[in-house]
Computed example of a mutant assay.
Amino acid sequence: MQSWLNVLTLFAGGAAAGLVAGTATCAAAQGGLLMGLVDGCHGRDPALVAWFLAGRLTSYSVAGALLGLLGSAVSLPPRARAALLVAAGVTMIVFAVRLMRRGRCATPVSADAPSRYQAPLLGAATVLVPCGVTLGMEMIAVSSGSPVAGAAAMAGFVVGTAPAFALLGYVLRRLSRTRLARLAGVVAVAAGLWTIGAGINLGGWIGGPVGGPVGGPVGGPVGGTVGGTPPATGSGVQTVTIWATREGYRPAIVTARAGVPVDVVFKLADRGCTGTVTIGGRDIALPATVRLPPQPRGSLRYVCGMGMYTGLINFS
């Protein structure tokens, strides 16, 4: 029987992760979907944001339960997430253009007003556009091995990020009734373009694919040097060390010898988007050590789980 203490611990941990680390990244990646609930006539209805959050809570809890029950088999691969990020960016732009074209409204009723059916559907759709911290929570749900524990972790995460979404919804409702609606629309268009760019980067559709085959995480962190050509260990495996920070990966470019296996030691300085790295078509939660087989001369690219930050390993 699942320990209820463990369930409560996962829920509390998810809430803390959402409040501390997930607020900024998730609001940036998913908050644009709130634009679908705002127009110049009905943007004042606070119940729509509540329905949006209810839909988000439901979809995340179901996803967590499935991940806990079925494991990583139900998680989306990076290329699929990249396509969804592009689709989300396009949707954000469509909503923003609609808001800018409507401007102020003189009539209180409109046939195409946002409905309480549309709101939870948009909230539920946020699970398809995961932010970097969401990916880490999904991996926790997978490792829990329990649908109850997986749902608790994901539900706690939604609760932790709820204040940020509620505040964003309030701001959008207020702006939709003022002359600043067009400015808000311009900002949302920029956010949509940024989301599309992140999806393209994650998918490797510009700048080449993200890495080649990898051996996956191997044990705990091992020693290594940063910069220059790393030495090989006694087993013939060289090591490089990369720090994941809120501003990206440091150093962003490292050098290794071609034709020699390499352990890439990813260390975590800050919780955020870079806490999950996508390399070789796989998502890996950090900190971790990734074993790469011998590589040919050239560059291997990796990105964070949201496609925001990129790093390079040059093999020479």
Rank of each mutant, 00 (worst) to 15 (best):
G219S: 05
V264R: 02
G215F: 07
G199Q: 09
P230Q: 01
Y249V: 02
L99D: 08
A83S: 07
L175Y: 02
G219K: 07
G223S: 14
M139W: 14
A96I: 12
A166K: 08
G13M: 05
I279K: 01
G305W: 00
G103E: 00
M92N: 11
G207R: 02
E247M: 11
A141V: 10
V90Y: 01
V109L: 15
L53K: 08
I279L: 14
T134Y: 00
G169Y: 09
R179C: 04
G259V: 00
V129G: 07
M1N: 05
R44H: 14
C131R: 02
T233M: 00
T239S: 15
V127T: 15
F266D: 03
G169N: 13
G219V: 06
V158E: 13
G145F: 12
R250Y: 03
G220Q: 14
S176V: 00
L121N: 03
S146I: 08
C304Q: 01
V148G: 00
G203T: 02
V129R: 10
L53Q: 14
L193A: 15
L268Q: 06
P209W: 05
P78G: 12
A73H: 12
V210W: 05
L121V: 12
A87E: 03
L292C: 10
R104E: 11
Q295T: 03
G132S: 06
R44Q: 06
G31E: 08
A125P: 11
G236D: 04
L53C: 11
V133I: 15
T278Y: 08
P296L: 00
G234Y: 05
V303Q: 07
R297V: 13
P217G: 04
A153N: 09
V218T: 11
R116Y: 08
V94H: 05
P231A: 12
W205Y: 10
T233A: 10
S235G: 09
L135T: 03
A15V: 03
P147G: 05
D263W: 04
G68Q: 06
T310G: 03
A252R: 07
P217R: 10
P221M: 08
G32Y: 02
D263S: 09
T239N: 14
P296K: 01
D45R: 06
L57P: 07
A153Q: 04
